[in-house]
Design a protein around this nucleic acid. Structure first.
Lengths: 103, 103
DNA sequence: CATATTAATCGTCTATTTACGATTAATATG
DNA sequence: CATATTAATCGTAAATAGACGATTAATATG
């Protein structure tokens, strides 16, 4: 989900596939869920996410990278911390693309 | 998406993850698209799907297996042919679960 | 019954994914 | 400045995924 404008149908399929693939792991769904449940516009630091998952910090970091590269989340630096949040509108974007492609 | 009733939240996450993971490949999205665009209640034989994809028959067969096991599609035997269709209501089911879990 | 058609499965190869601990880099703090 | 905190990256191991051609199994058909 790099750029939403001017992309071909084929690219839309690749796009949706990449988003779906990134969604396709229980720990990553959990991460998205955590971020989706944050109060409006809030961000969540990595250590909080790590606490909520039964896997190592380095593994969480890898999952965050997958989600970021697919376009689900974005991070920002806050001192020695890094905070993540869902990309604006990404839940709707995913559903919309799913609909447009398959319904 | 084996059984939609009486499953825990954790199982719902696994469920959604499995559906999303199966959706997360361009050729499998194409297959779902082909089946989604069939006239009401129609089925599509494997050879037709193979024709529409740039990969070998055996590979298509593997993708169909992934989609079937995740609960996206079902197959029925018709003479020497096998015909597939989307599982009834699966597109809505996926969207509903996505919403329930993440919105 | 022999042959053709159709699709699943097998065996194999290569690439990717998922996990971990260890290390590194960046920033805060005493 | 030395140390602590935080998160990314590295290296690695094991498992899974995705592709192929060859084979198999099941059913139709001449």
């Amino acid at each position: 989900m790099r750029d939403k404008k001017n992309i071909s149908k084929e690219e839309k399929i690749n796009n949706l596939a990449e988003l779906a693939k990134a969604l396709g792991h229980r720990h990553r769904i959990k991460i998205i869920k955590i971020l989706a449940e944050l109060p409006e516009k809030n961000k969540c630091m990595v250590s909080s996410i790590v606490e909520e998952l039964p896997i190592a910090q380095s593994t969480v970091s890898q999952h965050l990278k997958v989600l970021k590269e697919a376009g689900w989340i974005e991070g920002s630096i806050d001192g020695p911390r890094v905070c993540y949040c869902l990309k604006e509108g990404v839940l709707d974007y995913f559903k919309k693309e799913f609909d447009r492609l398959l319904l």
